[in-house]
């Protein structure tokens, strides 16, 4: 059984008097340990697909099953718990919390986990070490470069050992050198068995993925 199974997924938005068909009957299966890249032009529905896969955006119709659980049959809070236990997110603009240090940012997902403070700190340090920032635990986000902030965001996404790591345009705000480093890091994480679903508009990033899915006008091409 695939880790993620989506079938006949539709998502419509009301935009004034018009209805925008963001997704039109998307069906997919993603196995555990796969590194998937979702590509498409702006407005193709790739970010919508990612947000639905990530349990944050209720589809108009269709089913999203993660490890056998139809996540949209769970309530709001049930999906929040599911996200906390199974998903990690890397956002395009990093979205680090400006008043928390790198280590505290990484510890965020563990804030609500039933762990001792020492264990949380240890897990955060390990995650930061994995992304090569073990020496910058106490820096605030504004004391880090763009590439370093992205790494902190990745460390935050993997600190709770999620089943699936979702990344939305992870190199969108990085120069080519940092982009390559971040993609290499994703590859390395995937090599360790991490399932990754990445949305990108950069074709070069697809080379790092096992499989590429191209969306056009809300449908898989």
């Amino acid at each position: 059984m695939a880790l993620i199974e989506i079938s006949d997924l539709h998502k419509h938005y009301a935009c004034g008097d018009e209805t925008v068909q963001a997704l039109q009957g998307v069906s997919l299966a993603i196995d555990a340990g796969e590194f998937i890249s979702i590509m498409g032009q702006s407005g193709s529905g790739k970010s919508t697909l990612l947000s639905i896969l990530g349990g944050m955006n209720h589809p108009t119709s269709g089913k999203v099953a993660v490890d056998g659980t139809d996540i949209y049959t769970l309530g709001d809070e049930g999906r929040a718990d599911f996200r906390a236990q199974n998903f990690g997110f890397v956002f395009q603009s990093f979205h680090l919390i400006p008043y928390l240090t790198a280590q505290e940012n990484v510890m965020l997902p563990l804030t609500i986990a039933p762990m001792k403070s020492d264990e949380k700190r240890e897990a955060a340090r390990n995650a930061l070490s994995r992304v090569g920032l073990g020496a910058k635990c106490d820096r605030l986000p504004n004391q880090l470069s763009g590439g370093e902030q992205e790494r902190v965001a990745i460390a935050r996404a993997i600190v709770n050992r999620p089943h699936i790591l979702f990344a939305d345009e992870p190199t969108g705000n990085l120069d080519s050198k940092n982009s390559d480093e971040v993609m290499a890091l994703f590859r390395e994480l995937n090599g360790g068995g991490q399932t990754i679903v990445m949305v990108t508009h950069n074709p070069e990033n697809c080379h790092y993925a096992d499989r590429g899915i191209i969306l056009r006008d809300g449908a898989v091409v």
Binding site: D81, A84, F89, F91, H95, L108, P109
Partner: peptide, 16 residues
């Protein structure tokens, strides 16, 4: 808003 969105995305409940 963004910060709260991050909290919610990583699994914080409404009560949190």
């Amino acid at each position: 808003t963004t910060e709260i969105g991050v909290f919610r995305a990583i699994g914080f409940r409404k009560s949190h």
